[in-house]
């Protein structure tokens, strides 16, 4: 981990970054914001941890918990809403048996997220499965895609 953090620190110094750019690099590297990474930067840069957390919790891009292996993002934009994206979410939650307030399955295979709008409203409703855009989705189609992922079991994070 240390080496990865040093690298981020180097880009920060070279490119005149700021707290947000550090957090973006952390999110990119680890998939979330690890607590010890924040402590490390806080000491190195003499910026209080609270500033990091203030910014982390303000922006939707940052996560405090590590995501599941496969990330499914359902678009909640207006066009998608009109075409029933809430049913996609409830269908997924039912399939994964997710309890209230939890977005990642217990086996850490899947995480469900929502995004305000990905800007592909022409093909609403839209879901992103591991960053790949799937348009004109239905609950059944989405669950089929997920079953394919379940069978694959291999690392699919590089798709798309």
């Amino acid at each position: 981990m240390e080496a990865a953090l040093e690298k981020i620190l180097k880009t920060y110094r070279e490119k005149e970054g700021n707290v947000i750019s550090i957090l973006q690099d952390l999110e990119e590297t680890f998939g979330y914001i690890p607590e010890n990474a924040v402590n490390w930067f806080s000491k190195k840069l003499d910026i209080p941890e609270s500033r990091f957390y203030g910014i982390t919790t303000f922006y939707a891009q940052f996560h405090l918990k590590p995501p599941g292996k496969n990330v499914i993002i359902v678009c909640r934009g207006t066009a998608c809403h009109v075409k029933g994206s809430d049913r996609l979410i409830s269908g997924l939650r039912r399939t994964f048996n997710l309890p209230e307030g939890e977005d990642t399955t217990a086996d850490r295979k899947f995480t469900i997220e929502r995004v305000a709008c990905v800007g592909t409203c022409g093909m609403a409703p839209v879901a992103l499965i591991n960053k790949k855009v799937h348009g004109k989705m239905t609950s059944n189609k989405l669950i089929k895609e997920i079953k394919i992922l379940e069978v694959k079991k291999t690392d699919t994070n590089n798709e798309g």
Binding site: G17, V19, L23, Q24, I55, F58, Y59, A60, F62
Partner: peptide, 22 residues
């Protein structure tokens, strides 16, 4: 940006560029 609707508001956007909460 890092995902905050309010950052489309001009003063919030500029704070965000400064590396702060928008």
């Amino acid at each position: 940006g890092a995902g905050a609707f309010v950052c489309g508001e001009e003063t919030a956007l500029m704070r965000s560029i400064e590396g702060k909460r928008g």
